[in-house]
């Protein structure tokens, strides 16, 4: 109890400002504080975070405190809270909105670095094109050595293919084995597929940092591939 009391002192009620966050369209004001969100949240209790508290803070206008706080970044945006909320409040949307209001250079390290790298180089790792192509071909060769997959090839930048697939950066980094499952299915299903040689990144961390412009840019790259390669279907597994 003492711990809780001490913590409540850190909120300065003079900062309570109902006009702040008023324009936010997340229905935060109809929250009944039933706490089913916090009871369902997989990260409730981590660093004292819980979604009900975050919704209440928005409702009471504690915008600056939330922006500075770590809490919105603890949320995994899994959406369970929203699915159980009896009032249908878009709680992950609130978390994302708060994140979007932080200075970009104060976005937590890995997200900020990964996204900046993706915007600059086309993928979160900053992996050069030739290294990417080498890895893709190497994995394809390994598959070709397996019985039943003779002559397997990974088609890069194939114009007019039926299906374009993006790549999660970890699949060309630490999890190359995981590329094989999809590709073997394509082979057996006789799918006419391709993978782009540049801007192949499938993740879009602007989703997590609240950066809509970054998301537009990442999605635009995928759209450009489809236009240039004249591919009608997209497999974007992220």
């Amino acid at each position: 109890m003492n711990k809780v009391k001490e913590k409540s002192k850190t909120i300065n009620l003079n900062l309570l400002n109902h006009d702040k966050c008023k324009s936010w369209d997340y229905l935060q004001d109809i929250c009944m504080t039933c706490s089913i969100c916090s009871s369902s949240c997989p990260v409730s209790g981590v660093d004292d975070f819980d979604p009900r508290k975050m919704v209440r803070m928005v409702s009471l206008g504690f915008e600056d405190e939330l922006i500075q706080s770590r809490w919105p970044w603890i949320c995994t945006m899994c959406g369970k809270c929203e699915s159980v909320c009896p009032m249908g409040i878009d709680i992950p949307g609130i978390a994302r909105k708060v994140r979007s209001l932080r200075d970009r250079d104060k976005v937590p390290g890995i997200l900020h670095k990964g996204l900046s790298m993706a915007l600059k180089t086309g993928n979160n790792l900053g992996l050069p094109d030739e290294d990417f192509i080498f890895i893709i071909e190497d994995v394809a060769e390994e598959i070709a050595e397996e019985p039943g997959f003779e002559n397997f090839k990974a088609p890069i930048d194939k114009k007019g293919a039926n299906l374009l697939t993006t790549i999660h950066n970890k699949l060309v980094n630490t999890h190359t084995e995981d590329l094989k499952h999809w590709w073997k299915i394509f082979y057996v299903a006789k799918e006419d597929w391709t993978v782009p040689s540049k801007n192949w990144e499938g993740t879009s961390w602007g989703l997590f940092t609240g950066d809509d412009n970054a998301m537009k840019k990442m999605a635009g790259r995928v759209a450009d591939h489809m236009k240039q390669l004249e591919v009608k279907n997209l497999l974007w597994p992220e």
Binding site: C34, S35, I36, S38, S39, S40, C41, S44, G45, D50, R52, K80, V84
Partner: peptide
């Protein structure tokens, strides 16, 4: 707080998940 989930454990006991405010 309203609980999030209830699961059944051994001997028909019920495990209730909730956030203790």
């Amino acid at each position: 707080a309203i609980p999030g989930d209830i699961l059944q454990t051994k001997n028909n006991h019920l495990e209730v998940s909730f956030f203790d405010p």
